[in-house]
Design a protein around this nucleic acid. Structure first.
Lengths: 279, 279
DNA sequence: CGAGGTGTTGAGATTTGTCAACCTACGTGG
DNA sequence: CCACGTAGGTTGACAAATCTCAACACCTCG
């Protein structure tokens, strides 16, 4: 599963560590960078080329062929991309691997606000103020394409298409958050887990992956921190979905065997009752 | 309380019903409009003039002195401003009164995603796609300043300052949603209600109202629909906060008598324990 | 004065959290 | 190569929080 998602990474990438402009935000021994000049052909090969807000504008803008993306950064699992409160000078596009974004309260409570997969933007919430509002942490080995915030803002003034895309990305984030709030506020534990799987499935399908065979790159604890549940409750909910014949689970791999049933499990008894009534 | 918040409304406004350009989205008998020409001096008098994304740009932009705001619309309590799924052609700035935004799921579950007060923007989530993602409903008598979406997008291309403001507004929305997710995912009922009151207090204070004397313009049921609680639980939580001497409640009016204690009530025992340890 | 909307409180049912035991997979070091 | 430790996952039993249902109080409005 992981190798599938990392397929865009050329072998040996993680050993190429020639730094380019821009100080690393969180320098670590495991971090490495690929310079922009080497990215030229790579960007064109990237499966997200057309969708990528950083790559697609290299010709559209008056940057003399320079892409918005400055360089590509590789991260080990559990490595921090940026911390909440840190200055936001860079915007990232996930190129491979998975991330989580986390808000931490004063008293140590920890809420995961989202999981990001290849093609997703990271750090948009810091675009306005220039200060990050969340921690972003790689939950698998991962790589991101790095865009300077200042450059993105400049380009935002120059390209109508980029403005539309940026606006769309921000609105998507808001919509997605509203969907999560619906899960958190209105759903039982089992419904939340079912909804989480459906959402994951749809997002993966939208990126060309299988809609039924999902890897779960996050632990039960992380799923719980996203859904407002304890890890034991997540585990029980998954077991219940298995018993109902909706999914199969093998450690971190999940297969959705009854998509329709799983969708009904999200809406819960209300939808089930209505379905029976309408039939 | 309500009269305080409606103080910007000149007497008789709700009877002035001279329509201007742009078909009403949801025409009702109680809706009335004030034409842009009559708004000129009114906008300058508005207490949110400097902050208003629609008013402040009348001179900055090359619109020949025309303000972005087209007209002002008045709504009765419980009147719908726009529905989810409807085309988003207008963006609104709350000028007086209070609103709620609601996401509805297929099966009838209803999650309030936010309460909007004077100075807040409404409908930003539809800016990208041109389709509203939430219902917006006035919870008191209210008035909004109306900006054409197309015009706002056009101005977004022309004014660097507007771009910054719009970006800031969108990022604020995302941050605020993340804060709500933290409440929903990590807090007990009493902590959620305390956090809700603190947030309300801060937002009101930021707009020049009292931080301690709040009107609650929403019902217990609406507070519950926002916090993921039943109305009885909200009522019990409020009673508990009263018993602890943190607030006083008189129907819809709330006075915060111990702001520090209320803040500690949000973080819960963890913060309390830490506070004792540090002391 | 009555009706209906709103808010409070109580009692019992249900869901979820908490604590504990146990299991498996995996990596490490002898 | 195997023993061991550790992290992650599952399940059970009980405790705690919240929901549900019900009764009642209060206020507004006609």
């Amino acid at each position: 599963m992981v190798s599938l998602l990392l397929q865009d990474r050329a072998p040996g990438d993680s050993t190429a560590s020639c730094d380019v402009v821009g100080a690393p935000e969180v320098p670590t021994a495991t971090t490495s960078r690929t310079p922009a000049t080497a990215l030229g052909s790579r960007c064109a090969d990237c499966r997200f080329h057309a969708a990528c807000i950083g790559c697609a504008f290299r010709t559209a803008l008056g940057f003399g062929g320079e892409p918005l993306v400055g360089y590509r950064r590789h991260l080990a699992a559990n490595e921090v991309l940026f911390h909440a409160g840190a200055r936001c000078t860079l915007i990232h596009v996930v190129q491979a691997g998975f991330f989580k974004t986390v808000v931490l309260s004063d008293d140590g409570a920890e809420q995961i606000t989202g999981f990001q997969m290849p093609g997703d933007l990271l750090g948009l919430d810091g675009l306005g103020t220039g200060v990050h509002a969340v921690d972003a942490i790689a939950i698998t080995e991962a790589s991101v394409c790095v865009v300077s915030r200042a450059r993105l803002l400049q380009a935002n003034g120059e390209s109508e298409e980029l403005r539309q895309r940026l606006l769309a990305a921000l609105c998507d984030e808001i919509r997605s958050d509203h969907g999560t709030m619906l899960l958190l506020g209105c759903r039982s534990a089992e419904e939340r887990v079912a909804g989480f799987l459906i959402d994951l499935s749809e997002r993966l399908a939208g990126r060309g992956y299988s809609a039924c065979d999902l890897g779960l790159w996050m632990t039960r604890e992380e799923i719980g921190a996203f859904l407002g549940l304890e890890l034991e409750t997540v585990s029980r909910a998954l077991s219940s979905l298995i018993r109902h014949g909706l999914i199969e689970v093998h450690r971190r791999a999940i297969r959705i065997t009854d998509m329709r049933g799983l969708r009904e499990a999200v809406a819960g008894h209300a939808a089930h009752a209505r379905h029976q009534r309408d039939a």
